[in-house]
Amino acid sequence: MTSSTEGATPPDNLAPQQPSMPEVNKITAADISDSLRAGFSDFLARPVMSGFFGLFYAVFGLLFVWTLVWLGKIWMIIPAAVGFPLVAPFAAAGLYEMSRRLQTGESFGWFEILTVMAHQRKREMGWMAFVTLFIFWVWTYQIRLWLAIILQNASFSDFEGFLNIVFFTPEGWIFLAIGTCVGAFLSAVLFTVTVVAMPMLMDRETDFVTAMLTSVQVVRENPVVMLSWAAIISVTMLLSLVPAFLGLIFTLPILGHTTWHLYQRAVVPVES
């Protein structure tokens, strides 16, 4: 006789329901141009607030370079300046939230945006920051390694001397060639795993692994378009560093806002 307290026996093959991966779209060059226009429009809508994030990033860059000079790490200036844009996606978190609120018509001020940014430490964004900073650390470490191997007998007493050795000696050319190849590879890896992962973590409740896998899927489905976007970001950011990082006051916010709109075109939104 079956006890009345016994329930139905669950099937043996019952497995926990796994969260489904977000769907990604095919995008074109027109999506990049439309996203750029939308990003520029967001910048013009709140130029002071947007420019603040660019200014903060620029000031941090100047202080970073000054610290290297003060510590006598002259050889680190160029690698740091070139690798500095690697952490830009994380620095643009506040810009993603601004674009989201402008798009939905929500009112906001400094308090709302900074509160959302502070709240990210309790979510998955912190893990993405770790991934970003880890790759930046790998970048700086490999530069130091190649300096020791290739330019081991060189003396860097000042920045001008470092430039002369790197740009006007055969050893310096080898160092530049290897450093460029390794840097391009690391930049490609970081771009692939973060290009839509950062705005995605700001937009929806998901884990950072899913966000990174979605980002990889977007790049895999749209290699030419995303490669073009990577090239636009790289060239723009590097040119912005030339006038003492000041170009970042304008370019970083515009690129950040644009990234949000491109993410929305590349990843299918959550059904409400």
Rank of each mutant, 00 (worst) to 15 (best):
residue 6 E to S: 12
residue 11 P to T: 15
residue 15 A to Y: 13
residue 18 Q to M: 15
residue 26 K to H: 12
residue 28 T to E: 07
residue 32 I to G: 03
residue 33 S to L: 12
residue 37 R to M: 13
residue 37 R to W: 01
residue 38 A to G: 02
residue 40 F to N: 04
residue 45 A to R: 06
residue 49 M to N: 08
residue 62 L to V: 10
residue 63 L to R: 03
residue 66 W to G: 06
residue 71 L to N: 08
residue 74 I to E: 14
residue 75 W to K: 07
residue 83 G to Q: 05
residue 84 F to T: 02
residue 84 F to I: 07
residue 84 F to S: 05
residue 86 L to Q: 09
residue 89 P to V: 05
residue 94 G to W: 09
residue 98 M to A: 08
residue 98 M to H: 05
residue 100 R to T: 06
residue 112 E to D: 08
residue 114 L to R: 13
residue 115 T to Q: 14
residue 126 G to D: 01
residue 136 F to S: 01
residue 137 W to T: 12
residue 137 W to M: 10
residue 140 T to S: 10
residue 142 Q to F: 15
residue 144 R to V: 05
residue 149 I to G: 01
residue 155 S to G: 07
residue 156 F to S: 07
residue 159 F to L: 15
residue 162 F to V: 07
residue 165 I to R: 10
residue 166 V to I: 15
residue 175 F to N: 03
residue 177 A to I: 09
residue 184 A to F: 13
residue 191 F to T: 02
residue 194 T to G: 00
residue 197 A to L: 06
residue 204 R to P: 07
residue 206 T to G: 03
residue 207 D to N: 15
residue 213 L to Q: 08
residue 217 Q to G: 00
residue 219 V to T: 03
residue 229 W to I: 01
residue 241 L to R: 05
residue 243 P to H: 01
residue 243 P to E: 02
residue 245 F to R: 02
residue 247 G to H: 00
residue 258 T to W: 07
residue 259 T to W: 04
residue 260 W to R: 02
residue 261 H to P: 06
residue 270 V to W: 02
residue 271 E to A: 14
